[in-house]
Design a protein around this nucleic acid. Structure first.
Length: 295
DNA sequence: AGCCAGGCCCTCC
DNA sequence: GGAGGGCCTGGC
């Protein structure tokens, strides 16, 4: 099925920037319209960008049922030109936008997003993806068709049942305790993640940081990538380095890591999260370029 | 071998 | 209150 869409959408950078962990490009070699395989809304999904829009297939549900959900997931409703206009006042961000037009935030499932970013602590992106896939294979349900199938991301109940010990056996390390605790609290109804979409930023932030293993950075990822808080601004090592290198004021004012989020939100405004994503992607791309040149 | 990876928590001052 | 150390695990 085709979702007609001719406005800017860079599917490749959007799915591989590091905001989501379950999309696999196929083929991996450079091609004009590569497919991306993933699991979303309890379906195995493959999709690709074409000139006309987003072409996709899914199973077991019908394409008609999934189409509106995918449009939502890909944030196709975001008015990128308005967003760009809002954050282009910053020269550095403006240059990043010119470099990666159509890079979009995603609107992911809050539970999967929360667990993924709990796993991100002191971890690398490849292994985070491995952790997410391992949890799905072990505790999720198979979806797809016989020769091509993956597993749904486990529900809070499924991960609560799994327990800390089995999560540790999967290789989550010290994060296993945090994932198990979060699963118990969400499964028990103590924290209602979906309701946080309607809550104001600060309130949702406070609810998230009440979870073990979730502090300001992880919470802001969840807020930005799954809870519709486009003003969220996660400060990780990459953003920290980017801000210090690219914004002399940060160094002049001797701002500690903790002060960077409020500083950036003040500077970039209601779409600070989009600015964050562009700065992050630029910074990591620069680094990859350097490493490639180094050998 | 030793360090680092999209942090977080705990201790101690 | 904030600076510093430790943490599972895997890859280089």
């Amino acid at each position: 099925m085709l979702i007609p869409f001719t406005r800017p959408l860079d599917l490749e950078n959007t799915l591989e920037v590091g905001q989501a962990f379950r999309w696999r490009r196929e083929p991996s070699e450079p091609t004009e319209h590569p497919w991306f395989w993933g699991v979303a809304f309890d379906n195995l999904v493959k999709l690709r960008r074409t000139e006309e829009g987003v072409e996709f297939f899914c199973a077991p549900d019908s394409e008609a049922a999934l189409s509106p959900l995918l449009q939502d997931y890909l944030r196709l409703g975001d008015d990128l030109s308005a967003i760009y206009e809002s954050i282009r006042g910053d020269e550095r961000v403006s240059a990043c936008i010119d470099r990666y037009p159509g890079l979009r935030l995603l609107r992911q499932d809050p539970w999967e997003c929360l667990v993924s970013f709990i796993c991100s602590a002191n971890n690398n992106i490849r292994r985070i993806g491995g952790n997410v896939e391992d949890m799905s294979r072990s505790f999720g349900r198979p979806v797809g068709i016989e020769d091509r199938h993956r597993h749904t991301f486990p529900t809070p109940e499924e991960l609560a049942d799994a327990g800390e010990h089995r999560l540790r056996e999967l290789g989550l390390g010290f994060r296993a305790k945090y994932v198990a605790a979060a699963a118990r609290r969400v499964a028990g109804g103590e924290v209602d993640l979906y309701s946080l979409r309607e809550a104001p930023y600060e309130e949702a932030l406070n609810a998230l940081v009440s979870l073990e293993g979730v502090a300001d950075k992880v919470a802001n990822c969840v807020l930005l990538f799954s809870l519709d808080k486009l003003e969220a601004f996660p400060v990780d090592v990459w953003i920290d380095r980017a801000l210090r290198d690219w914004y002399p004021q940060v160094t002049e004012k001797r701002l500690p890591r903790k002060a960077l989020r409020p500083w950036a939100q003040e500077r970039f405004g209601p779409y600070a999260g989009y600015a964050n994503q562009y700065l992050f992607h630029q910074r990591r791309s620069d680094q990859r370029g350097k490493r490639a040149a180094g050998r």
